[in-house]
Design a protein around this nucleic acid. Sequence first.
DNA 1: GCAAATTAATGATTTATTCAAG
DNA 2: CTTGAATAAATCATTAATTTGC
Lengths: 172, 172
Amino acid sequence: MSPSSTRWCPTPEQLMILQELYRRGLRNPNAFQIQKITAHLSFYGKIQGKSVFYWFQNHKARDRQKLRKKQLHQQQHLHQYQHHHAPQLSNCYSAQRFYAQQGTGACGEALEGMVKRITWSADDLPKDQCLIRSYGHDSLMVVDVGPTLPCCRNRRPLETLELFPLRSPTLN
Amino acid sequence: MSPSSTRWCPTPEQLMILQELYRRGLRNPNAFQIQKITAHLSFYGKIQGKSVFYWFQNHKARDRQKLRKKQLHQQQHLHQYQHHHAPQLSNCYSAQRFYAQQGTGACGEALEGMVKRITWSADDLPKDQCLIRSYGHDSLMVVDVGPTLPCCRNRRPLETLELFPLRSPTLN
DNA sequence: GCAAATTAATGATTTATTCAAG
DNA sequence: CTTGAATAAATCATTAATTTGC
């Protein structure tokens, strides 16, 4: 009722044009495109550029959303995985790449020895790089875990992925 | 067919787990993390640690690549719009957010003035942000198009939407 | 049939991620 | 490490569909 106020209400024509543009592949119109589109659409009814901008944002997002929901419907297993956050491990656990072929000195050679047992077992290492860990006793633990576990479909997997708390959930 | 030698073919579940880890921020899993992830994923199908390593390497790289390609693609769109002056559009055409309430200095104030006329007209700007364009004379053209033209339902619109050539049909 | 009540869609805002330049 | 620019995700808010009781 109030002449001011209220949000844009697309006419069928406006909607069809937007949908056609979207169908053809437009996803993130830039300011210039938005102005042109707005000019076109204003033939069919009052409209502002921001409405066009928002429309593409929303339409794209909800398209994705719909798609994902469909996929997730097919694969519900994952729910178990998604909800845990764990203690923060900070960067003392971060691995670093290094290039094995480069002269790495004593340290490098020692590390290289470790690497081959720590990561995927020796034979199929990438030619020129591998993972190393530079922190102390954990490496032993890693070795214990062992390379390439056998497939075990009928067992439950490890309880959770909490070991990988990629980001501290608190702290804003 | 050959039982050995074939490469890893991720199951949907494996893929979703990896994607979720990636989404949460994991980029360079260390050897330990890789082993744990591998153990998890092996629940859903045969997999080796190196596959996990490679997956993250590739996914990260292709993410970057995709982004870059996307940016370039957008610039090509623009290219077609402005047949007149095709000069490199780079970022001088990109709309940018800025925060109006912050002291912006002379430049900022000038831009702010432009903003309110170029983008969705002054009064209903989002509270703390709006789109600005920083390019020169085009702004006049845009302004001429004007915000929110009056509705004129009984006119034919411009002949076609060809003005928005969203994708070059040629070129694969 | 018809509104009030309820739910689903979707426009509009805000917040969080992401990449990479400085 | 910090920050700018761009975008995606999450959320708020209003309108349209629809259900429901009469």
